[in-house]
Nucleic acid binder design. Sequence first.
DNA 1: ACCTTCGGGATTTTT
DNA 2: TCCCGAAGGT
Length: 794
Amino acid sequence: MSDDDPFELAERKPSLSQRAMGVTMQNLPYMDGLNAPQRRAVEHLDGPVLMLAGAGTGKTRALTTRIAHLIATGRAAPRQILAVTFTNKAAREMRERIARLLGETVEGMPWLGTFHSISVKILRRHAELIGADHLHLKPSFTILDTDDQLRLLRQLIQAENIDEKRWPARQLAGLIDGWKNSALTPDRVPRADSAAFDSRGVALYRAYQRRLLELNAVDFGDLLLHCVTLFQAHPDILKLWQDRFRYILVDEYQDTNVAQYLWLRLLAQGHRNICCVGDDDQSIYGWRGAEVGNILRFESDFPGAQVIRLEQNYRSTPQILGAASGLIAANKGRLGKTLWTEAEAGHPVRLIGHWDSEAEARWIGEEIEDFHAGTRRSIGRRELNDIAILVRASHQMRAFEDRFLTIGLPYRVIGGPRFYERQEIRDAMAYFRLAVSPTDDLAFERIVNTPKRGLGDKAVQTIQTEARQLGQPLLIGAQSVVANALLGGKGAAKLREFVDAMGRFHADVLDSRVNHVELAERILDETGYTAMWQNDKSPEAPGRLENLKELVKALEEFDNLQGFLEHVALVMDRDNDEAQDAVSIMTLHAAKGLEYPIVFLPGWEDGLFPSQRSMDESGMKGLEEERRLAYVGLTRAETLATISFAGNRRMYGQWQSSLPSRFVDELPEEHVEVLTAPGLYGQGFGAAAMMGGADFGAAMQDRAATADVYNSPGWKRMASRGDQRAKPRTPAAVVIDAEAVGFSVGDTVTHAKFGDGTIMGIAEDTLTIQFEAGFKNVKAGYVQPAGGVDDVPF
DNA sequence: ACCTTCGGGATTTTT
DNA sequence: TCCCGAAGGT
């Protein structure tokens, strides 16, 4: 029986090697250096434990040591420990650290992995029990990525004759994902949701699930959902897994959704040894179904739970922690932690306002050059690898990329499109998938006309019709189309070629004498896929070929194509090689779990951060999640954090003025150093936030002309450098749509409340007007040309 | 069947 | 502004 077979449940005593190592409670080298709560978290093994671990408090250390302790003391064999993470990276890190703690003698932990990868392993065992009637999953099921998922949904929407413009597949995908995250099968979707997606949401969901079964496929959400329904419908099987997992550990518990919560609770009901680690203040995935409530409710879910707080921070200075703590204090319903540190006070969090997003990027670029050159005595010379820029939304990255390219500052974008999400990788994967399983219709559809084979919609329809009539997959349908000459023209010969080739490849996949790496190469070459990119003259073509090479190379680490496909579907992530010294740019979400000595937090403007959409969609909950995001951002910094905001920002090609983020005002003043001109912020942050964006911009221009602006450190530096800022600039907004609203810059207008004013800028239908009371942004409809004061439009 | 043009929409995204 | 999907021309 295989090592991780659930039906083989023989318990194991501590291995000989463990006993030979002389591991006893008195001799536990891996415990060295743990602080008291960490130690408690490691030693309190039985019963439910909630480890509330603030940012930088060594939770991974506690978690891995706990696992090492379980193994070393013989409380559980590695195979009896279930350790769940959200990301492959986290799983990999844990694996490495456990191995380091225990030395090379310990065998791998088969059940350390992501929710999804563990679910796949479980599901493959019981696939036949998923589904109904004669339609059920087979153990060889494929896992669809989001791309496949959307294509499938689009087909279903079209089949229902629904207007795709009004009811986009994306929205349906989001809806279905949401239901799956909440562990809702079509039958269980609450009545309140029945109006969703033009009242057809549930029906489409049902159709989608059925179609997936027909394709012998599951999507990401299904991995969890199927496991939960499997456990609920088959207590005997649940029992097997409950018995197997004597100890359960969960990382980032604050990010679990309902499905994951049920999954865990079902499994933990066996031995009840569940240890969840998390930080309610770092819950930032509510929009994806994560329920902070899970962690807030832990003690009532698991009565008698031991709660352990890790509060000693080993990462950041007291100044940074003070700023972060002060900010997060505005959130309600927290479990509450007080982070403390023994580190030196350090530098306060710096705050600076800029004229616009380009100035912000320029300034940060210069700061980084300074840090890199070591011209700041207080900071010392820094590697670019020590520096990160954390943004709220990925479109903010562009300003930095543009600027850094201009000044030749090396940077890397972390996150972004994943390797396996690239077009060429997906295409190649589809070829491999079809070669491995000729029944994979989605793969067939994807590549049958890539490269172009003269097979358009009509040809594909012919194939589909034929396949449906035969009750066979598309590849077989295509074979039949060829055999019966149902298709004319150039496409016919090409299709024959394609079908024959795929047949050969499939035979080769089954032939153990054929090397799978060479086979993969041959598949891409002989189908003309490689040639397609070689002939492509677009600038990205060479990169794509490079990626394909990388893909084939990655195959070497696997025994066969099947194993590789499974890996890529779930596990393959882009490796960010740290070999090159470069500044890291990423979203705040991508930054969770990372740390950098120097962190820049640009774009703290209301509407961008906190994001307007979060607040519109989720109100106070949304705002609190945004605040947690800010907290996550600040706590990434070890020695220096710099927050900035811009008075004007280009969004979708339009210049928009903006106010500093409300989070700026929430920062505790005693931990902040304001770098912006003293006149602007002399009255504290409140004054800054009360200014409209346009006020801010105008004030900036005013100040630029006066001497005292150069007295603040930030401005002094910029001035000495001859920064462009010295030239007063006109907001680009002025240029845009100047005619569209019937006003132009310079016009005098009257407003019912603010009186007469002069238009200083126009962006769409929003006018920036200088009134006696100051600058205001006003919709064009609320003002009229001064002079004619007959009717007021409201 | 394939290429060009036009219009609408546009966060965050561990798997 | 930029990207994607749909429509219309060749």
